[in-house]
Design a binder for these strands. Structure first.
Lengths: 252, 252
DNA sequence: GGCTCCTTTGTTAGTAATTAACACTTTGAA
DNA sequence: TTCAAAGTGTTAATTACTAACAAAGGAGCC
């Protein structure tokens, strides 16, 4: 009974693509709305449909729609981050010990990073999961409380990790930068963690796309002179570039 | 302004897969809910996301989910694990402090777990990412070296975490069990970690699907008498059930 | 600068869909 | 038969959504 009905719903949805609950009710006149809802719920769990407001949509339909979208995907800021990440990936040498933060740019970097023998510390669990696909990279996750908004961990306890740890290189990014306020982010514990990282790392590379410039966030964790290399995109203002170069920082 | 924000939303969604409006509001604290709604509406028109009740989902995620559904069918014991996980989920009370391991069964459990106010420690990053979708659950990730085969972390350093920590409850699973050799797994550091957890936890619930029975792995971390509750499936042999019950263990 | 138009954003109230909770029914096994 | 478990229907309460209007910001023009 139930099984048959669910199959039938799945078939109809595959055929029509998208349907409202109202339409489904007409299709199954002697079944209550609630039951149909529950059927949709189960189909969603099986991964066969996506429930949308007022009804459901078959997965096939989604793939059709998304196929259209992928062709016209020419985004601006994502591109900048990817370019930055690609550049940064070329700077990672075999056998190095490296710290990577948990931000979006680090996420792109972890996709671009070659599968070389190296040691990566990170506080981003999404970054860690991405890196886990590369078989030669050894990953250490910094533990602590998980912040749900950016999927990164940090806690005072995490500092204990670093006492016995050194990095050849730290590649981090900030969510805001001004010359006066330096590099800042919006979480105090993350800021503390990064300060610690800056102390332990021999070299620090900063990934900063131009949209971050001129913004100020609550917690500054570093200033211009603390970094060695700045990796940015083409829209980076020239006057800022000069400013960094005055401090012997390589701008890419 | 608008363009940038929309790009950023798309990025975050690609990274996280699925998000509620509430989570998006946290991500963009100085933008109204309505604006975010309108952004999502536009992203949907562009075919980059699917709006679902309470938020949105990236099309990438949809493809992932539908892919999973296929592989799900091929694996055999998944059903038993899900049933076990569902049962375990009902045993978690509001306000509890809980340890969860990083295994597949724990992964299913984290999907089934209700969104109640509680504190979860885990060494599984896939588990952590799954739990991050529940807004009331506080998550602490145990740091350490990441093992790529099961996406769980463990290291001697992780033990430092537990010195100041107590759990009301630990829900763990083993990869092998015999009455003589007890519960065992194939990683020494994981075994060490679990031993530590057993010491710190007031109650221990073991999730063990029947396929694990009669197998022996290298490292034993607990014996029958160490656990309080055993959660298993219908194929669990009756003679074993009696054995557990002799030790005052509740078998579910 | 001051003025307009137009786009973007915020606020509110009203509507619609969803979930939760309970009661009833069916099914299948002991 | 009797019991338990799964499925279904109904209602109430919650939650998300839309619509409509008001306010704020920008670009262009005089």
């Amino acid at each position: 009974m139930k099984r048959e009905r669910i199959e039938e719903i799945a078939e109809i949805l595959d055929k029509r693509g998208k349907m409202t609950l109202e339409q489904l009710e007409k299709e199954f006149p002697n079944v209550s709305q609630m039951t149909l809802r529950r059927d949709l719920y189960q189909l969603e769990e099986d991964g066969r449909i996506i429930r949308i407001r007022g009804g459901a949509m078959s997965v096939k339909e989604v793939q059709k729609v998304s196929g259209e979208a992928y062709t016209k995907k020419t985004t601006i800021n994502t591109d900048a981050k990817i370019v930055i990440a690609q550049k940064a990936a070329t700077l990672i040498d075999e056998g190095i010990s490296l710290f990577l933060d948990g931000g979006t740019t680090a996420m792109y970097l972890s996709k671009e990073i070659p599968d070389i023998n190296c040691n990566v510390f990170t506080n981003g669990i999404a970054v860690a999961m991405e890196l886990a696909q590369k078989k030669n990279i050894n990953i250490v996750v910094v533990g602590g409380q998980l912040m749900k908004d950016n999927l990164s961990t940090s806690s005072p306890v995490a500092k204990a990790y670093f006492d016995a740890t050194n990095f050849e290189l730290a590649i981090v990014s900030a969510t805001a930068f001004t010359p006066q306020n330096g590099f800042s982010c919006n979480s105090q514990i993350e800021s503390d963690l990064l300060k610690q990282v800056f102390q332990k790392a021999r070299h620090v590379y900063m990934m900063l796309d131009s949209s971050k410039i001129g913004k100020i966030n609550s917690y500054t964790f570093a200033h211009i002179e603390d970094i060695d290399v700045l990796i940015t995109d083409d829209n980076f203002p020239k006057e800022y570039k000069a400013l960094f170069e005055q401090n012997n920082i390589v701008v890419m």
